[in-house]
Design a protein around this nucleic acid. Structure first.
Length: 288
DNA sequence: CGCATTCCCTGGGTGC
DNA sequence: TGCACCCAGGGAATGC
């Protein structure tokens, strides 16, 4: 599931290879993910255009073209955006959209579960895209400080900490894997609410988020399912550094107690009940 | 308004 | 081996 580090890795892998190259054709095999244009409009939007710049905001990709046009992409669960040579084999059979450049090179979008979203805009995407405009500060932004986080989180006094970390309008880019890792590093139980937090905890959340996401970027992201980020089937390596996520019933690296898995607001959640304190029972939903 | 639940999807896993 | 079923989850929509 692509989160901030995985989106960064995709961008690092395509950026230099696609910028300023002329798009001479667009193949749409499945338009399920194209949300605000017909196939014809989508093709016309890109035809004979060039990608001039790529930005990331949280888990969103923003591709800028000429004349203030922009393309906003979200990979959701299984989306992949990968640079290929024309004759490269498909990564999988779910190649929904391909942009073809004028030199036997291609940019291909894959998405097994069709969860991804694509939007095209003719002016500022940050103003036009309803979702993008709601995304909060990047964790690396200097403005993402104690006061910012405290103010944002204190609007949700009854929501558990994990759900707050997953809320893209607070800190941008954290998903299910890194939320578990961040809370473990902070020694905070995912089921607690902000009532349990003091200023040091808020600062720990900010600092550990930056540290963990940066380490994950260095490792090219985390591979837990089908994530690969290039045309050579390379995978991220941060799963080797995960301390709780996916480690159900394995001994905690800090205290040797067994890591527990539970479900919190529909998300698989891993934590150490010894390092991260007692579960706030009312917030845990029992399995069916 | 806040907060919880449902829905979209399909490959992989499980049980019979 | 085949078939029915369940599960994973980001974010929008829906419910209360």
């Amino acid at each position: 599931m692509p989160e901030l580090p995985e989106v960064t890795t995709f961008i690092n892998n395509i950026k230099d290879k696609i910028i300023n190259k002329k798009i001479i054709d667009i193949i749409i095999n499945n338009n399920k993910v194209i949300k605000n244009a017909t196939n014809k409009e989508f093709k016309e939007f890109f035809m004979n255009e060039k990608f001039l710049k790529i930005e990331r905001k949280g888990k969103y990709f923003i591709f800028f073209l000429s004349n203030n046009k922009s393309f906003v992409l979200h990979l959701r669960m299984e989306g992949k955006i990968i640079f290929h040579l024309k004759n490269d084999p498909l990564l999988n059979s779910h190649n929904l959209v391909t942009w073809i450049f004028d030199n036997n090179e291609e940019l291909r979008y894959y998405d097994t579960r069709l969860f991804g979203t694509m939007h095209i805009y003719y002016s500022d995407p940050y103003l036009n895209d309803k979702s993008l405009s709601k995304v909060g500060l990047e964790p690396f932004d200097d403005k993402c400080d104690l006061n910012y986080l405290k103010n944002k989180m204190q609007k949700h006094p009854k929501t558990n900490l994990k759900t707050l970390l997953l809320d893209q309008s607070i800190i941008a880019g954290i998903g299910n894997i890194y939320a578990d890792e961040i809370l473990f590093a902070c020694k905070l139980n995912p089921t607690w609410t902000i009532i349990k937090l003091n200023d040091e905890d808020y600062l720990n959340i900010i600092n550990n988020t930056k540290m963990i996401l940066n380490n994950a970027i260095k490792a090219n992201g985390t591979t837990v399912a089908s994530y690969s980020f290039d045309n050579h089937f390379n995978i991220g390596k941060f799963q080797e550094q995960l301390k709780v996520h996916t480690r159900n019933n394995l001994p905690c690296y800090e205290c040797k107690n067994l890591i527990k898995k539970t479900k919190l607001n529909g998300r698989g959640t891993y934590y150490c009940s010894s390092c991260q304190g007692e579960v706030y029972k009312k917030s845990i939903k029992k399995h069916k």
